[in-house]
């Protein structure tokens, strides 16, 4: 079942990194008061796994992603990539945000080149930028500016900008949340294909149970804020998955039940 995915991961032994989240708690300071957002979260992700984080809106999933990316430091607990502790951002862990946040003053090509340029290796590795653009099928738009792109194209550029760095952990923060449903379905398939091909570990935040089940090996369900791990569900189905699969439908019912939405199902 997971065999295809695992086989892919085996062909790229160094591609995905293991991720350990150990008893992490976090809180925001709002006007002096402490607002807890994460409470004692522990998750262990195998190299090459595709993990979806599912939970009610505003529960703290995105905060957890920022901690994994190294953009913020947790108040308690530890995060590790393989065996090294995560203390600050690193291009081996790249985030794709809900908004594409392309730099409007840079062309598509220059946006994708951002990571290599920031690391000072662009001059010798320009080919990687072309390859990444090929990967998302936007080579012919290399000279376009972001304001000339549609929402789906902009998000593809953001994906290319992440992938050009050959990340070992790809962090997706509701990257398809603002796209129309057709573009969304297409891009879900693209993300699975890229993940199978490259073998990176993937962390996807979403509040769409169906999206989580179509994409991920594992779905972790969070409680309301402060977020706690409520359930850790393995999805043993081969890819490409079908939305009408009764097995997935059953899991979806379970998950919605966990989220307190079983009455509406």
């Amino acid at each position: 079942m997971v065999a295809t995915a695992l086989a892919e991961a085996v062909t790229h032994p160094a591609a995905g990194a293991a991720l350990d989240i150990e008893q992490v708690s976090h809180a925001f300071d709002i006007d002096g008061a402490e607002l807890p957002v994460l409470s004692d979260v522990s998750i262990s992700v195998e190299p090459g796994e595709f993990v979806a984080l599912l939970g009610p809106s505003g529960c703290g999933k995105s905060t957890l992603l920022r901690l994994v990316a190294g953009l913020d430091k947790p108040k308690a607990g530890r995060l590790r990539e393989d065996d090294s502790r995560i203390t600050r951002p690193h291009p081996s862990r790249v985030v794709v945000f809900q908004d594409p946040t392309l730099f409007p003053w840079r062309s598509v090509w220059d946006n994708v080149a951002l990571g290599l340029e920031a690391q000072g290796i662009l001059k010798s590795q320009r080919q990687r930028v072309d390859d990444a653009l090929d990967l998302v099928g936007l080579s012919s738009f290399r000279h376009a500016y972001p304001h000339q792109l549609s929402g789906g194209m902009a998000q593809r550029v953001a994906l290319a900008r992440a992938l050009v760095n050959d990340p070992r952990i790809l962090i997706l923060d509701e990257p398809l949340g603002k796209l129309d449903s057709l573009t969304r379905i297409t891009m879900q398939a693209e993300i699975v294909a890229l993940w199978q091909r490259k073998g990176f570990t993937t962390l996807l935040v979403t509040h769409d149970a169906e999206e989580a089940l179509v994409l991920a090996n594992r779905v972790i369900v969070f409680s309301d804020r402060p977020a706690r791990v409520k359930a850790d569900i393995r999805v043993d189905r081969p890819y490409p998955r079908h939305r009408g699969d009764p097995y997935l439908a059953d899991l979806r019912r379970q998950i919605l039940g966990l989220l307190g939405l079983d009455a509406t199902w």
């Binding site: 990316a69 690193h90 862990r93 790249v94 985030v95 990571g115």
Partner: peptide, 17 residues
């Protein structure tokens, strides 16, 4: 926008960048 800095930082940007 702070989001631009977040993007650049995750891609390995130093303060001068």
């Amino acid at each position: 926008s702070k989001a631009y800095y977040d993007v650049a930082r995750t891609l390995g940007a130093k303060p001068s960048f």
